[in-house]
Design a protein around this nucleic acid. Structure first.
Lengths: 145, 145
DNA sequence: CTTTGTACTAAAGTTGGCTTTAAGTTTAAC
DNA sequence: GTTAAACTTAAAGCCAACTTTAGTACAAAG
């Protein structure tokens, strides 16, 4: 099967399929300093499977609210070695704290959306009185507006 | 105290403070058809406190991923009355389903961010072996990458 | 009644995160 | 060896959601 003699080299199009990103996005991330793929003698980029894990990790950080600029900073510090670990922790901690707040707000909005849908459905199928408006409904559920 | 003889009229600046939005944003939302404040004879907008609840509700929907365009559609249907309830339910349901997926992914990313921070902190204070990389750490926690 | 603060409109500008275009090069299949 | 697909770069374009600017009018305080 030849699975482990040498890492398979993915060209950008195939690697895009692996990561779920587009080729232009991979080039864009490279230009922004997030990734640095290998090159063949003729200048074509190539990526290995391990690289996909790294990119997925970056995308997770991105999802939690890190900007490209912050990711770049993180990647730079990482390349500088262990002396920057405290900086990296501080950066991730900041992202963590911001996300925690937003996440709480998001959960509240999620509750409101669900309550509103339930309220509409209750009105349509007659389980909720016509006279009970959404504010009253929330109050009855003991949910905040 | 004269609390209930007449609703207090907020001018745009004060109302912006109440809602946490800026005056230009309130004007922008109006232009996009999300809100329609009252006007004095001389053309100045004014808002009542009740209006704040409505805006907050719209912002909750916005947080769950609704675009301005979708909010506008929702507001239009609402103005048309009960005959559009099914459409409104369908729209909110779509937003609900999309958000549910994204929310699950977000929770995963949140776990990863927390794991990474814990891993860094464990390395710094010596509770995690230098030899254990992040992938191994995730595996040990039985967390997915 | 003047000054200072706030509001009005329309239009142009900003931002982040890509995506598209254009013109040329390399690779893979036949 | 030819051709089509996939790659290269740099630069321009796009989108949503605001924000800023410019020029003007109204409101509140002294």
């Amino acid at each position: 099967m030849d699975t482990n003699t040498a890492e398979h080299k993915y060209r950008i199009g195939d690697f895009a399929a692996v990561t779920g990103l587009s080729s232009p996005t991979l080039r864009y991330y490279e230009k922004e300093g997030l990734i640095k793929p290998h090159r063949t003698e003729n200048g074509l980029r190539y990526y290995t499977k391990q690289y996909a894990s790294w990119i997925k990790f970056l995308l997770h950080l991105k999802s939690t609210g890190m900007t490209i600029e912050q990711l770049k900073q993180y990647v730079e510090w990482r390349a500088e070695g262990d002396s920057t670990i405290d900086k990296r922790i501080a950066l991730l901690q900041e992202v963590h704290d911001n996300f925690e707040k937003q996440f709480a707000e998001l959960q509240h909005s999620w509750t409101i959306l669900n309550d509103k849908l339930d309220w509409y459905k209750g009105k349509v199928n007659g389980h909720i009185e016509d006279s009970e408006d959404f504010a009253a409904y929330l109050k009855r559920l003991n949910h905040k507006e």
